[in-house]
Amino acid sequence: MKAIFMTTWQEAVRKKTFFVMGAVTLLYLLFWAVLLHYFVQTVRERALTDAFAGLASHMLTQMGLQFSSSLMALLTVMLGAGAISSEVESGVILSIVTRPLRRFEYVLGRFGGLAALACVYATLLYGLFLALGAAFHISTVTAMSLGQIVAGWGFYLLIPVAVLCLTVFGSTVFKTVPNGLLMIFIYILGNVGGMVEMVGNYIASKTVTAAGIFISLISPFHTLYAGMERILLPTSGLVGEMMRGASGLSGSGAPASGAMYVYIAVYMVGFLAWTVYRFHKRDIS
């Protein structure tokens, strides 16, 4: 399992996957820094009130977090879409699984390597995002306590790991490209689920809210994002009310229940176990 884990890392480095991810991220952070610069300049020049500047910085941070988590999720899909399928399609797997290696070790080695890679990436992205916010004295960022940052980081890491659980499972069922497209669709569906739930709350329709919850059960990634947002931006419930319409992707209703988080844990472990089972049972030809 260690050999597979290490090779997965080496592959990302040698194939320059990590480099490409870094370049895309750098562009994003550059864009983010420019945005923060003009935001701070505008606040200063127009002498906006603290309340309005606070609201604006909240919106800005929320938007940045949403975009960074989406970027991270999409790059995770890129990493994991061919985790197993690409090796089956190319035939590389034939010389691997005929070695004294149990099939579950192969799956867990691949998953572990990719998950570690995604977590390192997520940590860097999270850290740089917050560091930039702090450097530009964005009030919502500078107000965060260490406890908030650590707890938010935990949720932030769970997003790519959860996406990876589903994506690696998909790579035992579908070929690489269809799997990647399907996973992107499911991820976006999760955001849509959040919006549907929000609309349901808005119009006080239990049916629409239930539809949103149902979508979140299929794609619970947005719930993890919302959990992180609540920790980092604790006023998001109030501000969310004010921002409905302005922020399409994160209008938050009530916080997710404990049962939902248990469901997400079962979802992740379940898909990983299903991947191991499917790969163990399949013929490799």
Binding site: S90, G91, V92, L94, S95, T98
Partner: peptide
């Protein structure tokens, strides 16, 4: 084992 479809 050397597979017929040798890809590394």
């Amino acid at each position: 084992y050397l597979p017929e479809l040798f890809r590394y």
